[in-house]
Computed example of a mutant assay.
Amino acid sequence: MSGLSRQPRPTGDDGSSPVAPAHAGRLSQRLGRGLVRGLPLLWLALFFLVPFAVTLKISFSSPATAQPPYLPLLEWDGGLEGWREFFEALDFQNYQMIAADALYRDAALSSLGYAALATAILVGIGTPTAYAMARASARWQPILVALVIVPFWTSFLIRVYAWIAILKPEGLLNAALLKLGLIAAPLPILDSPYGVLIGLTYAYLPFMVLPLYAVMSRLDPALTEAAADLGASRARAFFTVTLPLSLPGLAAGALLCFIPMVGEFIIPDLLGGSDTLMLGRVLWSEFFSNRDWPLASAVAVLLLILVVGPVVLFREAELRREEAVEGAHEGAQR
């Protein structure tokens, strides 16, 4: 067996194995992928999970005339006995109060109603707007997108205040309608539900248009051309081809609008008047007027549950849609 002698392993100029750089490269790639995945999780942990845990803890506390205005406080040097006393002092009293008081139920239903109605209006306005932008020439599309984004260059609060000057009885809108002879007396739009809906529609319209435009601009024009060749009108081609393919963008835009509108405070406060009941106003009142931080934290947890629900439903619908598409694709291959 002397003829089968083992060949020496090749080495580099410095005596190191050439396999080492490849192994180091794979290790660096794994570290890079782990870093890319870990940073968003770290961001969520620091700026969502930790604040939510603090809010959840305060929601089980009791109001107190102290600083901070709630009890109990966790004493880190109390040992196991201190932890036991801390958890025993927590209760569900704030959630029981929310369940028993019709104010919070009415505020939640009102917030959901305003957000749902405004989202429906945004779908009706944003869909044709995004479609027109997607069908415009390539030279005009960047200009149209810029015009949609321009309102973000101005403070949100200033834009809402501008609507006060437009909607008040002696404002620009009523003055124009009176001059045209369309109305005999100023319309009570400000400090009414109509003012809230107008403000919500104006403020969140870009969040509906941009996701829809992003999806519609990537659709193949040959699809609508094929529908037209088969005898479909432009309207029928839109509702049977373009709109179904744009549903992911429509759903994303609806969520981007619905979720923040449920907790909106500035627009109902400035355009809706004192009679407008929404969770955002109730939350502000409990925090700053009543200084009842535990009850306000419980309202905030309720608000989070209301806005997370649609996200979970959307995610489940997307998973079912993806499974259906994969199943149809596999069936076509067979």
Rank of each mutant, 00 (worst) to 15 (best):
residue 301 V to R: 11
residue 181 G to F: 13
residue 282 V to F: 12
residue 244 P to H: 06
residue 257 C to H: 03
residue 178 L to H: 05
residue 240 T to P: 03
residue 221 P to I: 02
residue 254 A to L: 05
residue 283 L to G: 11
residue 305 I to T: 01
residue 270 L to R: 13
residue 187 L to W: 02
residue 180 L to F: 14
residue 253 G to F: 03
residue 185 A to W: 02
residue 282 V to H: 12
residue 182 L to P: 08
residue 250 L to V: 13
residue 297 S to K: 10
residue 181 G to N: 11
residue 293 W to E: 06
residue 302 L to H: 00
residue 262 V to N: 02
residue 297 S to Q: 01
residue 284 W to F: 11
residue 238 F to Y: 03
residue 295 L to D: 03
residue 227 A to T: 04
residue 250 L to K: 13
residue 194 Y to A: 15
residue 192 S to F: 04
residue 263 G to T: 02
residue 189 I to G: 07
residue 205 L to Y: 00
residue 185 A to K: 15
residue 248 P to S: 13
residue 289 S to A: 12
residue 294 P to C: 14
residue 300 A to T: 05
residue 309 G to L: 13
residue 178 L to R: 10
residue 184 A to Y: 08
residue 289 S to L: 12
residue 302 L to T: 02
residue 225 E to D: 10
residue 270 L to T: 06
residue 262 V to H: 01
residue 214 A to S: 14
residue 190 L to H: 11
residue 199 G to S: 09
residue 189 I to P: 06
residue 181 G to I: 07
residue 190 L to P: 04
residue 249 G to Y: 06
residue 203 A to G: 05
residue 240 T to H: 09
residue 188 P to V: 05
residue 262 V to C: 07
residue 257 C to T: 09
residue 177 L to E: 06
residue 191 D to V: 10
residue 284 W to Q: 11
residue 265 F to Y: 14
